[in-house]
């Protein structure tokens, strides 16, 4: 029943941070950070995704461990797909 403890104030703070991060990511894109532009953009996106998943989707307070296992394995599967595929595609060139 811990989900009852999440206060509306916390939700507004999370929302404010998400809006700020949105404008930060749009602004930073116009700076020349060399190869770091993409890294910064993806890091900010992952921070935003984590805020939504942990606080808005109540994963932080989820009492059921099995739910957390499902979430972590889902992300793990995605990383397997991306990682193994890129290991292949990045060692060859398409066309030309």
């Amino acid at each position: 029943m811990s989900e009852h403890s999440s206060s509306a104030k916390l939700y507004w703070i999370i929302w404010g941070s998400l809006i700020v991060l949105t404008f930060v990511t749009a602004g930073v894109a116009y700076l020349d950070l060399g190869p770091f532009n993409t890294i910064v953009a993806l890091t900010i996106a992952t921070c935003k995704a984590l805020l939504v998943i942990l606080f808005f989707m109540h994963v932080k307070d989820a009492s059921e461990r099995l739910t957390k296992v499902v979430i972590i394995s889902s992300i793990f599967w995605l990383l397997i797909m991306l990682g193994l595929s890129l290991a292949d595609f990045s060692t060859r060139t398409i066309g030309s």
Partner: peptide
């Protein structure tokens, strides 16, 4: 229903930088 809505939001959180902000430096 909220979980579904938030998930669609998370997808967009990645789509925005990946599609709009690939390379905006001067």
């Amino acid at each position: 229903g909220g979980l579904y809505w938030h998930f669609v939001d998370v997808v967009w959180i990645y789509l925005f930088p990946l599609l709009y902000l690939i390379d905006r430096k001067p």
